[in-house]
Design a protein around this nucleic acid. Sequence first.
DNA 1: TTGGGCTATCTTGCATACAAGCAAGGACAG
DNA 2: CTGTCCTTGCTTGTATGCAAGATAGCCCAA
Lengths: 249, 249
Amino acid sequence: MQDSPTTITPRDTIEDAIVSGILNARIRPGTRLSENQLAGLFGVSRTRVREAMMRLETRCIVHVSPRRGWFVVEPSAEEAMMVYGARRVIEAGLLRSMRALSDEGRAAIRGHLAEEKAAMDAGDRQRLTCLMGDFHIRIAELAGNPVLIEILRDLTARTILISMLYQSDFHALQSHLGHCRIAEAMEDGDFAKAAELSIEHLDEVETGLDLTQRPDPLSELRSSLSLPPRSVPSSDGGTKTKSTTTKGE
Amino acid sequence: MQDSPTTITPRDTIEDAIVSGILNARIRPGTRLSENQLAGLFGVSRTRVREAMMRLETRCIVHVSPRRGWFVVEPSAEEAMMVYGARRVIEAGLLRSMRALSDEGRAAIRGHLAEEKAAMDAGDRQRLTCLMGDFHIRIAELAGNPVLIEILRDLTARTILISMLYQSDFHALQSHLGHCRIAEAMEDGDFAKAAELSIEHLDEVETGLDLTQRPDPLSELRSSLSLPPRSVPSSDGGTKTKSTTTKGE
DNA sequence: TTGGGCTATCTTGCATACAAGCAAGGACAG
DNA sequence: CTGTCCTTGCTTGTATGCAAGATAGCCCAA
């Protein structure tokens, strides 16, 4: 797993490096991303680092705290639910829209499941995290719609951040089995069933999260003092829903 | 429909202004967006204009031709199909995921349909374009998932650009009726049917496009010379699918 | 008239400089 | 010892300057 050389800089290396780091669970949520440090690291000026950050910000992967710094997002419990909700909708819709599985598709899925199994046997948790996310991207790739692939990639990145925050222990086996069931239905050509299984699977994963504790480092203190649990974990801007709609009359 | 005053500049006015302009069909695909002009228009320096452009670029709403300028995207026929495909998946998935319609929800939908009808009667095509797009955002708002809302908003913007490029004439009545049918199924609580209708509706709209001619200004000349139609309309990078996946050893 | 090449101008790409603001640590008064 | 204030350093925010490249128009030659 060699690190990519930072000498050649094909335009958006910084962005990709960070996303890749998150996808591989090497960058934790809340990590501070200093413009100067990154600029030094990549041998460019702050300008280009900033551009990358702006892009990542519109993808909801980092956020800026004014004059304090850039940070990898720490999704709130509410946001986490929304991300899972969006994934349920999109992935179920995607599966339902599929009609048949090509031979390469079948092979790709089987190959992926084998990789998952190998990583599980090897106990390589980082790699497993990454593969678990990739499974869903693989399906999108099968459908061959780049628009959806890109959307799911970003949602997967956010999902991994969520896992790192809220997943107390890793039910790898359970997830793997879920994937296997979905794959089976797909091989049977029963995509409606695959869609249902996909929803169930995401439900399972979501309920496997501990959405009350993690993002609040004071939770232990709070509970030992018998204070009520914080209403909304992240009280800054919250979910950003810009009103760029119609603006009718 | 007053224009927003450009005096107060709350951070991302430029971005919103452009998206809003597209949503209202006031900005055509292919429009050149000069950094200097926008900077002057909004009374800021190029830096901030560039930031806005970068953000819009990650949302696939503008693109940059190196050292030539920024342009509002002109989706290729292929891209157009992908966008419609993504919308079918997401909107059908969304409707299927819905369980019941609140009273406010019902009212919102009815209100929207009334607006569509009014605009149709008034023959206000711009407003109609905008409303037609908004219908689908309204549904997402009903589901109350900000993540999906944001995704659909961007897809809607791209859809409107596609319409402006490929829609020879505007089947407003047909679209409106499609919306009405979907709404009816929703009011009946039959969301599976609403999902199916939604897919049909998007299919109708898509097949109503003329995906062979428009983006190529030479098409008329080409056909009068009996040359074969261009294989792939946009032969530049094509659909950008960055390889930000696993990169596992 | 036509074709080739040059230049003038305008575009973005990128780095840098300066301004504004936050945070932490120390000095100091109570 | 404790609380307050100030200073210092480091962060991002924004503008500007310069360089590289592309385009269009012009001149000139054939």
